[in-house]
Design a protein around this nucleic acid. Structure first.
Lengths: 157, 157
DNA sequence: CCGTTTCCTTGAATCAGTCAAATCACGGCG
DNA sequence: CGCCGTGATTTGACTGATTCAAGGAAACGG
């Protein structure tokens, strides 16, 4: 990372504070962390940090483009520092683990819908649902069960 | 609709009750309704209907495959009766309006990620974010503002 | 080093959704 | 046609994630 967190914050017009640096550090170590995780981990760096402070910091980071908020259905929000590089996410239905997926295709046909119903689209968000390797190994029979509760059928496309 | 709601419920192994028929009716008239909307509208058909009953009904419908639950980030869950036909959604950042998008492409390259990080993927969910026609007309300057708060950049693909 | 502005803390409130116990009614059986 | 058992609904309380508001503290320009 050529630029430091300090520089990034200043460039974004934000003051450099201990809570913000702590949160940034945590997010750098753990991409896709939820608020709870961030609070716990950041307290190692700043023991008096309050959850509300973390919410405030995250909102500031997201608003200024330093962080991105993702909200998998049925789970608390997650935050990541990878921004502006067009990537999507794999989410495990069983444990909630999240992995990044680079979008290899420049102009994906499915992502520029023919009929936009009068909408002006500025972003296409893709979430891949499945089971991570650990969960598949741990509970081999889970697939059918899990699928039953969510949308059935194969991969939508 | 060749089959009646009664038949669909019985086929799914569910009892035919007034709350369920009311909710189905409402969903048929208003695709993409949230729980609040469903409760209000369904009370016209069944005045003593409780919110918890609606939650129960919706859970039963989703579990049995008669309805689908969608959860746009930052909004309460929405429900629809279109199931099993691989379609996605357009969501208005301003008013939350939702429209269906048929997925015209059979095998979309972006939807079978090359590197699945060990995940077994069973569904690809796509959400197109933008502004609906009404919101664009109503508040022509909103686009920039709105985008500032969410992920910036052009259409991810 | 001081003042202004922004940020963090503390405490309370909101909202969506869930849990649990008791009542009610669908629909099979006699 | 009416009874019974299972499953559904009602009522009420509760959790968990997130937000709001007021006062105090800290950043940073001068």
């Amino acid at each position: 990372m050529a630029t430091t967190w300090q520089e990034q914050l200043r460039t974004a017009g934000l003051r450099v504070t201990r809570p913000r640096l702590s949160v940034l550090q945590v997010l750098a170590e753990r991409p896709h962390a939820d608020v709870d995780t961030i609070v716990s981990a950041a307290r190692a760096l700043h023991p008096t940090l309050s959850p509300q402070a973390v919410y405030g910091v995250l909102q500031a980071l997201v608003s200024s483009g330093l962080a991105r908020r993702i909200e998998p259905a049925g789970a608390p929000a997650l935050f990541e520092l990878r921004v502006g590089d067009n990537h999507h996410h794999l989410v495990c239905r069983s444990c909630g683990a999240v992995a990044d997926v680079d979008c290899t295709v420049g102009a994906a046909p499915c992502l520029t819908p023919s009929d936009t119903a009068g909408f002006v689209v500025d972003e296409a968000e893709v979430v891949f649902w499945g089971l991570c390797r650990e969960c598949r190994v741990r509970t081999p029979g889970v697939t059918a069960q899990v699928l039953q509760h969510d949308n059935r059928g194969g991969v939508n496309a």
